[in-house]
Design a protein around this nucleic acid. Sequence first.
DNA 1: GGGTAAGCAGTTTTT
DNA 2: CTGCTTACCC
Length: 687
Amino acid sequence: MSKISANTLNDPQTQAVQAIEGPVLIIAGAGSGKTRVITFRIAHMLEKGIPQSAILALTFTNKAAKEMETRVKHLTRRKLQNLTVSTFHSFGLNIIRNEAELLGYRKNFSIYDETDKITLIKESLRECRMNFHKVDLFELSQQFSKIKTGLAQWSNDSSGMQAVYDEYQHALKIYNAVDFDDLLTMPLELLEKHGEMAQKYRQKYRYIMVDEFQDTSLIQYRLMKILTDGSCANVCVVGDDDQSIYSWRGANYENILLFEKDFPGRLEIKLEQNYRSTTTILDAANKVISHNTGRKVKKLWSGKGGGKPIELFYPENETDEANFIASRIKNLIIMEDCKYHDFGALTRTNSLARNIEEAFLAENIPYRVSGGTSFFQRKEIKDIISYMRLIANQNDDVSLLRIINTPRRGIGKTTIASLNEMARKNRISVWDSISRMNFERSRGQQGLFGDQRTMTELEEFTAFIESFRTLMLEKQSEQGKPWKLSSCARTLVDNIDYWGYLVSEHGKDEKKARWKFSNIEYFIRMIENWESDPDNYDSGLYPWLNRISLITRDDGEDDNEGKVNLSTIHAAKGLEFPVVFIAGAEKGLIPHERSASGEENENDNEAGNIEEERRLFYVAITRAREKLIITSCKKRRHMQNTADCSPSPFLEEIPKELIRYHEKESEEIDEDTADKFMEQLKSIIKK
DNA sequence: GGGTAAGCAGTTTTT
DNA sequence: CTGCTTACCC
């Protein structure tokens, strides 16, 4: 890869790489070598003598950031200690960390993910004497996000939710915690309020790049803009309006228009040559996306030519579908010499991956799921993380309440309810109310609880957390051994006897307990790996917590080798595979029913939602290099009952002549295949 | 006051 | 099927 020299770039690509000064807008169609252009551009800057510390590259996902960094590293063969390549969120986190006091936070603040957020919203509803069964928590959480990021305002009939929001915000402050939205809004507020601080950042980052620009939200745009120095700043944004698929998260591809307005002197470059897909696949993609309105004009073309027809299959049900995919993979491996990592199986939702997973397991097909319930969301992991969080930040009530009785230590709901009551009344955290209680008792006052045992349990609990606070934060090496977070964590797990807890919880199911415990061991090994990473110069408790708060997927090592990639379409963005399966191309899934019927979305009209779904389908198609295989079930089991399905309306937008229909229920192995298979088998046996 | 068993509702995509 | 809440029992 590092062998590629600049003259392998085409004209617009070269232009994009060389245009370092001034604002640049790059419209990069799918598969047009966008990542390469960005990496070369950064490498070019470094060659010109621009210091690493002056460059800021903002991406959308951790995966993209990591990928970009390694690519630049390979290309330049330099150490990149001072180059900032990060997601908007972790960039924001850094600013907050540096300026915590200004925001009224202590620097050990916790970061609440979506689950923590929902828990806290529940608490807030309870505090406002509202029944959370009548409220869609998920929806309310999104509403809060919209309010916080300025995408929505309270209307008069907000049915008391404004009070809940205020309560929620207040609680965050007391707990010394921030949510994901705060990671963007707080830095923006800071920089807007403190001109000299903004100036400081502007002087530092003189060259800014934004990847996946179509997926930036208004807040992110404003954050980028305040970091740039006027309309002739050295800022380069790269995006493709046709691949904007995150509007539900506040992304707005019209930011491209904003950019054009704010930087009138920009250089605009279009990358339209597709290096990825065959003409067949590209034709299909182009036809589909042409049904959208208000696109930027662009004509993607491919020099690859021809290609095999797109395969379309209508399985009876989801089991059939999964078996078909599995057998098709086996077949292609034998017939066309494909490797497992040549395949990507894409679904609209995470849950759809389940069936396919089962088929892969049954057929012994190695696979890797990206997406799905994140490793860090698993209960056993969240429990341990909650301990660590509470140790770092004792006011973190969400974490405290999660683990105060896990494993069981005889602190029940009545106790917790009274603690909560006391905390709310005094506007302090639960931890502080326990301390206050202890204090009052020590002065001979009547405690809240008559029960001496409960008091003792509470005292033991706080003493336990305190002892680990000392252990984990004061980095003394014990007996000459270097201090290590991982070994502290191991001690923690031992001391709370989490293993005993797992066994008692899963009485009959020891396998499950074992599996969960192995997850914890894996978690600790992750800490170890991180500690021994030479690029990591601060391996303390806070940095670790900050780090994992921003990672959702376990994008550990790149051991994709020899594995089929099973993922959602969203998670597949930026990836490419020789062979792509799109499973569940059915009405109601693609486009998804919840976006098709634009109920509560006042802002975006229905067409906008349909168009986004079409873009999603477009993204899925354009992941494929050689072969595209689409399946659409006739029937599908949804929750308990099976329902009839019809094909996705988008399928009709693919020209018929590009499609080949599968008749048979599953690809039967013909004699040729069987022979070849036997040959392979023999050669394997010989080894 | 705390733990357990039956009963019930249910996830679009991600930082 | 699963995970979570509630109601009930110790």
